[in-house]
Design a protein around this nucleic acid. Structure first.
Length: 482
RNA sequence: GUCCCCGUCGUCUAGGGGUCUAGGACACCGGGUUUUCAUCCCGGCAACAGGGGUUCGAAUCCCCUCGGGGAUGCCA
């Protein structure tokens, strides 16, 4: 059995398409099917090679490995539709010869006019079929006018088409309301998706067409092409779409929608795959944090939900945080590196063991990798000047009491390079009546410049004596001198 | 408008005639741990869209209404 993912290279990989890819891939791995990648680049105006490359990268990043595809070939290639035009031409000839298709000389403008008129009357548009019956004389006249014909597929009247769908069940359409004769080849000779998807799926021996629900209403047209060609239909499964919080199809205005941006934000592919698998599907025991293998073992076409689901950014974030907390530290350090650089530090200048300890201390407060930018300065900056909230806290009287006390301890060498790890908190505690929040928050603010962050006991030794001393001095000068 | 799909807590879902005073997860709220924020642990809030059937019995089956989504391209 074989499944395919067939993106159109007209931009970045959208999260919704990524889910289609993931579902196909998970199912392929689960059932031992082949996974084929096909590039549907017949939209000449919008398709680009850069886009194709970025989609390939994103799929790889997600952990998807295709068995056949444009970059690695296979027995049913080529895998780019733009390279298969000769194949399509033969079929078009045949459809034309057998009178299942005809040349249409209407111009886009003419059609547009009719469409507008019909829409104004609130009736469904249907091709007027003018060219379906014209004779050779008229054709010659049009050609003399310099018109290039498109090819239209002839839709029979009153034909019932039942699509057997694994997820939705049996759906019956009447050929009378699928919009009439539809174009399969543009006037410039470029074929249309709806047509060649049929050809390629057959030619590439795709057994299961698993795609988004937005393709469901195209399916009867495709079935009709199968019938005209006398070839059997594949198995179909149309999964529901992902919605934004307002329940409209997920789009840019809802937040980030490209896989690339998720990667840049610092989501882990494992978390993204895990989260997406759980949209419209659940395990028997309700477990949610699942490894790839666990998902593969349990997922089944038969229990994928029928209803659309709202993409919950918050839950994804939460799940990503779980993955960050459970990741092997060594690999995690690697993953964090670019974000540390982005924060303005050179991670290579930091001793590896030290860096690993820092990551271990802060991973708990990171839900996405880029969160480290907010806390890394605690360890790598000399001062890490207090941010707004910390500044506000340090201006409080009880904070000043602690700053003055600590400054004395440092300047009088009571706290020194030898004892600071155990000493700072202990001695401050001994020198004041303050406790709890009023003790710890000022200490945290003074020493780290932030109100949030890793545990103080873990942070102090990692910051180091010199930096701590400077920070205390800075706070003393800033908040305790009149 | 027309065609098609869908409808369980705010969100993702479990459930497929009795075991449902409807279970889990995120979010939210409260408590505990951490003499601190976060993490972690415990607890709470919160749903069968509405109306008709069928049945001894309906979240579960049927119909209608309503609501949402998709399609309606010489895009994919």
């Amino acid at each position: 059995m074989r499944v395919r993912f067939a993106p159109s290279p007209t931009g970045f990989l959208h999260i919704g398409n990524a889910r289609t890819a993931i579902i196909n891939y998970l199912l392929a791995k689960s059932n031992n099917w082949k996974f084929i990648l096909r590039i549907e680049d017949t939209d000449r105006e919008r398709s680009t090679r850069e886009s194709e490359q970025s989609i390939l990268n994103d799929l790889s990043w997600l952990g998807i490995v295709w068995d056949e595809g444009p970059d690695k070939g296979g027995s049913y290639g080529p895998y780019r539709q733009s390279e298969r035009f000769d194949i399509y031409r033969e079929y078009t000839e045949r459809l034309l010869e057998e009178n299942n298709a005809y040349h249409c000389y209407c111009t886009p403008d003419e059609i547009e006019t009719v469409r507008k008129k019909v829409e104004a009357e609130n009736k469904p548009y249907e091709c007027v079929n003018r060219c379906g019956e014209i004779g050779d004389d008229d054709k010659k006249k049009f050609e003399l006018d310099g018109r290039k014909p498109a090819v239209r597929f002839r839709v029979s009247r009153g034909e019932l088409i039942t699509v057997k769908d694994y997820i939705k069940g049996n759906i019956t359409f009447n050929s009378d309301n699928i919009g009439g004769d539809f174009i399969i080849v543009r006037s410039d000779g470029y074929p249309i998706y709806n047509y060649i998807v049929v050809l390629d799926d057959i030619l590439m021996k795709v057994s299961h067409v698993i795609r988004g629900e937005d393709h469901l209403s195209n399916t009867p047209k495709q079935v009709l092409i199968h019938r005209a060609l006398g070839i059997p239909v594949p198995e179909y499964a149309h999964h529901p779409l992902i919605l934004g919080p307002d329940r409209a199809k997920l789009s840019k205005r809802h937040g980030i929608t490209s896989v690339e941006l998720y990667r840049k934000e610092g989501y882990l592919p494992e978390a993204l795959v895990n989260y997406m698998a759980l949209l419209g599907w659940a395990t028997e025991d309700g477990a949610e944090i699942l490894t790839f293998d666990e998902i593969v073992r349990q997922i089944d076409l038969k229990n994928i939900g029928k209803s659309a689901s709202v993409f919950d950014f918050q839950k994804l974030r939460w799940m990503n945080g779980i993955y960050i907390r459970n990741y092997p530290v060594d690999s995690l350090v690697e993953l964090f590196l670019p974000y540390i650089t982005e924060a303005g530090f050179d991670p290579l200048a930091v001793e590896e063991r030290h860096l690993k300890s820092i990551i271990t201390a802060v991973r708990g407060s990171c839900e996405v990798l880029s969160d480290i930018k907010k806390v890394i300065g605690i360890f790598l900056s000399e001062l890490n000047e207090p941010d707004e909230e910390a500044d506000k806290m340090l201006k409080e009287d009880y904070s000043r009491e602690i700053i003055i006390l600590t400054e004395k301890l440092f300047s009088g060498s009571r706290i020194n390079g030898e004892n600071f790890i155990e000493g700072i908190i202990t001695m401050i505690k001994e020198g004041t009546e303050l406790k709890g929040k009023k003790l710890f928050m000022p200490v945290r603010a003074m020493l780290t410049g932030r109100l949030k962050g890793p545990e103080m006991d873990a942070a102090i030794p990692l910051i180091g004596f010199e930096k701590l001393r400077k920070r205390v001095e800075y706070c003393f000068n800033t908040y305790c001198r009149q």
